[in-house]
Every structure is written in structure tokens, then in C-alpha cells.
């Protein structure tokens, strides 16, 4: 049985130590004196992005005693486009959530540019910007499309309102949705929602962007366009991109390297060519399925 954790530094940190309470009380004491204008410092920080390197070491995660991620070791270089493929339910989304600091590992560490992301010892909490495109899109239902895309910019007050509008328009055009700013998210189709989610992630000029099934709900033409967008972002901005996808063509076309996950483990990592040539049966089964294309003799 899990022991009760009475004190949390932040409500969302989950089990936390006394340490966190102390820092929290400090924050509380200083908080009231610090003006809310301090966020204006971010103005200078919102610049171009630059890729970060990621290193995952011995990551384990279980839910209710059932191990889901088993000893994941992974190194992703700065500026790399990296794909993770694998059958449904192996924990690909969960792995992304660990990188996005949304889940705490049971054991193991994740380093971004050499800093452990779970123990920020003296390092400013967020020295790099990352964003995630969720499998479910996770748009804010109470906001319009434009407000969804501009939320980060408005919250961080990094730009003038007129500039923010321009950025929103620009990012929506990137995903082929220019002019939908005023629409409600409930009026969108699944594919449109996904594209709005992508625009929202791009609006913060991230150094690291995590895509969870970006093409799952897109038609082939739109996914082709998305591939071009991701490719051009990579060339222009040198950001680190991690893609979880079932769409093999998409993943193999875009990626510098691909990892195959099965049953909570990474069973192979390599360039797309290496993976295609792999003799591992699981990988061959995954890549060369029989139901692809038109049946012969028809």
C-alpha cells in the first residue's frame, strides 16, 4: 500500500519531501512582496529556439504494481528528429509524458542538456522551452482557436497584443488553418483539433517539441504537409523533435533515428535504413505488415 503523503510542495508534485514544504513556505513569504510584474523579464527570453539534448537513464515506471516502462535508456542529440514506434499500449505516450515532466519516474533519471529535470538543484526551473502535442489534442474547450494558440504568449506577456495576433495567424497558417481564429474548439474536426494543438505548441518557439501521434487523424495530404512543416522547422530552428507515431512512412521519412518499443522496453534504435534492414522479427513484423497496399490479383 502506498504511504500517505501529507505535504506537497505543489499540489501537483505528488509525494514530496519536507524540503519542498520549506521552499514553498519561503516562496509564500517572499511571494507577497514580489510584484507580479516580474514575468516581464521573459520578454528578452522569447527568442529563437535552439535544440536540447536528452538523456534518459534506467527509467522505470509501474502503475498499481504493473511495470509499464522497463529500464528505458535513450540518448537524443540536440537538434535531432527522433521517432518512437511500437504497438499500441507499450507506453510510448507515457514515455513522452515523463520527458514533459508530467509523470514522475519510479526510478531512473532524465537529463536535458545535462541537467536532471526532476531535481532542479539551483538550475533555473525552465531554461529551455518545451511543448507537447497530446494524443488527444487537449485543446482548452472554453477558449477559441486563436485563444488556444495565443495562450502561452498572453500568459507570459512576451509580446504586444498586435504582435501576438500576428504570431497566432502565422502559426495557424503553418498548419493550414489560417482564418479559424474565432472558431470554437467544439466546432473542429479531429484532424483540425490536432493541427490547432500543433500550432499551439509552435507558438512558444520551443527548443524541444514532443508530438504524440501527430498524424493519427490527418488525411494523407495534410500529413504530408505536416511532415514538410516539421522538416522546415528542423532546418530553420534546429529544435529537437520527438515523434511518437504509428505512421511508419511519416516517422521513417522525417527521423534521423528511430526507436522501436515493445512491451515497455526499447528493443532497437537505429537510423531508418538500419531499422528497415533489421533482422529482429518483431521489427520486421511491425514494418512489413501484409495488409499494406492493394491486394495482388485484384
Amino acid at each position: 500500500m502506498k504511504t500517505a503523503h501529507l505535504i506537497s510542495g505543489s499540489f501537483f508534485d505528488g509525494p514530496a519531501s519536507m524540503n519542498k514544504l520549506v521552499t514553498f513556505l519561503n516562496k509564500l513569504a517572499h511571494g507577497f512582496s514580489a510584484s507580479f510584474l516580474e514575468t516581464n523579464n521573459l520578454k528578452e527570453e522569447y527568442g529563437e529556439s535552439s535544440g536540447v539534448s536528452i538523456s534518459i537513464q534506467g527509467l522505470n515506471k509501474a502503475f498499481d504494481g504493473k511495470p509499464i516502462l522497463k529500464n528505458i535508456n535513450l540518448n537524443i542529440e540536440a537538434g535531432e528528429t527522433f521517432s518512437i514506434i511500437g504497438p499500441s499500449g507499450t507506453g510510448k505516450s507515457l514515455l513522452l509524458k515523463h520527458i514533459a515532466k508530467l509523470e514522475l519516474p519510479d526510478s531512473g533519471q532524465i537529463f536535458v542538456d545535462g541537467h536532471n529535470i526532476h531535481t532542479n538543484n539551483g538550475v533555473p526551473e525552465r531554461s529551455y522551452r518545451y511543448s507537447m502535442v497530446f494524443q488527444s489534442s487537449a485543446l482548452f474547450n472554453s477558449l477559441t482557436v486563436g485563444e488556444n494558440v495565443g495562450l502561452w504568449l498572453r500568459e507570459k506577456r512576451v509580446r504586444r497584443e498586435s504582435r501576438i495576433r500576428r504570431i497566432i495567424h502565422e502559426k495557424l497558417s503553418l498548419v493550414g488553418l489560417a482564418g479559424t481564429e474565432g472558431m470554437l474548439t467544439s466546432e473542429l474536426s479531429g484532424g483540425m483539433r490536432k493541427r490547432v494543438a500543433i500550432a499551439r505548441s509552435l507558438a512558444m518557439n520551443p527548443d524541444l517539441i514532443l508530438y504524440d501521434e501527430p498524424t493519427a487523424e490527418l488525411d494523407p495530404v495534410t500529413s504530408d504537409e505536416l511532415a514538410k512543416v516539421i522538416q522546415s522547422l528542423k532546418i530553420k530552428l534546429n529544435l529537437t523533435t520527438i515523434i511518437v507515431s504509428h505512421d511508419l512512412n511519416f516517422a521513417l521519412y522525417l527521423s534521423d533515428r528511430v526507436a522501436m518499443m515493445d512491451n515497455g522496453e526499447i528493443i532497437e534504435i537505429g537510423t531508418p535504413e538500419e531499422l528497415k534492414k533489421s533482422q529482429n522479427k518483431k521489427i520486421r513484423d511491425f514494418i512489413y505488415t501484409t495488409t499494406k497496399g492493394i491486394k495482388e490479383g485484384k
Partner: peptide, 22 residues
């Protein structure tokens, strides 16, 4: 609760917006 279940709270966190504050 719906925001929690449909990952909107997670999305807030990745946008550096504290859900408690927001």
C-alpha cells in the same frame, strides 16, 4: 474534472501555466 481527464491540465502544465493559478 473534465480538464483533468481530457489532459487539458497536463497541457496547461506544458505551457508553463500553473493550473492552481489559472
Amino acid at each position: 474534472g473534465a480538464m483533468q481527464v481530457y489532459e487539458e491540465i497536463d497541457a496547461l502544465k506544458t505551457l508553463e501555466i500553473n493550473p492552481v493559478r489559472y
